[in-house]
C-alpha cells in the first residue's frame, strides 16, 4: 500500500538570539492509510515540531525548513502555496492539541467552532448543525444538541478535548495528528480519550500520529512507534517489538519511566543524559 504521508530527511532549524538551533535533523518516517504511528520523546526532542511541520504550521520566522520533503499523497507539502496549505489543513490533516482549555477559542461556542471547520472544507453539507451534533455524539458527548451551544469554559477538560477531537474529525481528515492529547488531563480521562481515539481509528479508517512523551499510553493504539531524541529518530519499529526489545538506550530509559502497578521498584528511573550523549557521539 502506498504511504499516506512520507517524511524524507526532514530538517528544521529555529533562528534564536543565540544562533540557529537544529530542532529536527534528518527525520524520515512513513505512515500508511489507517495506521497509527506514535512519536515518542521527551520535551525538546523535536516531536511536536515534526507534528506541526506536517502542514507547515510552524511560524516562519523563527522556523526554517532547511531540507527534506513532506509527501502527502505524493505531493510535497513544503512546496505548496498558502492556499493549497489551507486546503489540506483540517481537510487532509487535522490536529488535536495538548491544552484543550486554551486551544479552543474561548469566546465562541463549540457549535460555532465546529461549524466553521465544516463550512470551510465541506461546503456541500446542507445541515451543518446536524453534522456538528453527529460528530459530538461520535466522540461520546452526552446530549450533544444541547451541549454544542456551550462555551469551552462550560465543559470539563475531558469534554473540551472530546470537542477538539470532534472538530478535527468533522472535516473527515485522512490523518489526525494528536499532539500530547492527554497530557493536560486526569489519568482516568487520559485512558478514556486514548480508547476513544483507538475506536475512532478503527471506525473511520483514519491514520493517526500520536505525539507523546509517555510510552505507557501508546500500546493500545499505535501499530508503529518512532522514538525521537534531540531532533533525530533514534529507533523505529512495530510498537510491541520496540516495547519488548528496545535497541537504543534512550528508548530503554523511556520505557523504564513507565510506572507499573505492583512493580517492586523503589523509585522511578530518570534519564542519564551524559551517558546518552556519550552513546550518541560513539555512534556518530
Amino acid at each position: 500500500m502506498n504511504p499516506l504521508l512520507e517524511l524524507r530527511n526532514l530538517a528544521i532549524d529555529f533562528a534564536t538570539e543565540n544562533g540557529m538551533v537544529n530542532a529536527v535533523r534528518g527525520v524520515s518516517l512513513s505512515i500508511r492509510p489507517g495506521e497509527a504511528l506514535a512519536i515518542v520523546g521527551e520535551s525538546g526532542s523535536g516531536k511536536s515540531v515534526t507534528g506541526l511541520a506536517l502542514t507547515r504550521l510552524l511560524p516562519e520566522p523563527p522556523a526554517v525548513y532547511r531540507s527534506g520533503e513532506i509527501l502527502l499523497h505524493g505531493r510535497d507539502v513544503l512546496r505548496m502555496s498558502p492556499r493549497e496549505l489551507r486546503e489540506i489543513r483540517g481537510r487532509r490533516i487535522a490536529y488535536v492539541f495538548q491544552e484543550p482549555s486554551t486551544s479552543l477559542n474561548p469566546v465562541f461556542t463549540i457549535r460555532t467552532q465546529i461549524a466553521e471547520a465544516i463550512r470551510l472544507h465541506r461546503p456541500e453539507v446542507v445541515d451543518v448543525d446536524a453534522e456538528v451534533v453527529k460528530y459530538l455524539d461520535m466522540v461520546g458527548i452526552v446530549d450533544p444538541a444541547r451541549r454544542m451551544d456551550d462555551y469551552p469554559h462550560q465543559l470539563s477538560g475531558g469534554m473540551q478535548q472530546r470537542a477538539m477531537i470532534a472538530m478535527a474529525l468533522s472535516c473527515q481528515p485522512d490523518l489526525l495528528v494528536a499532539d500530547e492529547p492527554t497530557t493536560a488531563l486526569d489519568v482516568t480521562i487520559q485512558a478514556q480519550i486514548i480508547a476513544q481515539l483507538a475506536e475512532l481509528k478503527q471506525r473511520l479508517k483514519m491514520a493517526i500520529v500520536l505525539i507523546t512523551h509517555n510510552f505507557g499510553i501508546i500500546g493500545g493504539i499505535a501499530e508503529n512507534v518512532a522514538v525521537m531524541f534531540r531532533g533525530r529518530v533514534v529507533e523505529t519499529g512495530p510498537t510491541q517489538e520496540v516495547l519488548r526489545n528496545p535497541q537504543h538506550p534512550y528508548t530503554r530509559a523511556l520505557i523504564d519511566c513507565i510506572p507499573r502497578l505492583g512493580a517492586r521498584r523503589p523509585r522511578l528511573s530518570t534519564i542519564d543524559h551524559a551517558a546518552l550523549s556519550a552513546f550518541e557521539s560513539g555512534q556518530g
Partner: peptide, 11 residues
C-alpha cells in the same frame, strides 16, 4: 493557542 487551532483548521 486558539490561533494555532484556527490555523490548523485552515481558517
Amino acid at each position: 493557542d486558539y490561533v494555532r487551532t484556527a490555523q490548523a483548521k485552515g481558517v
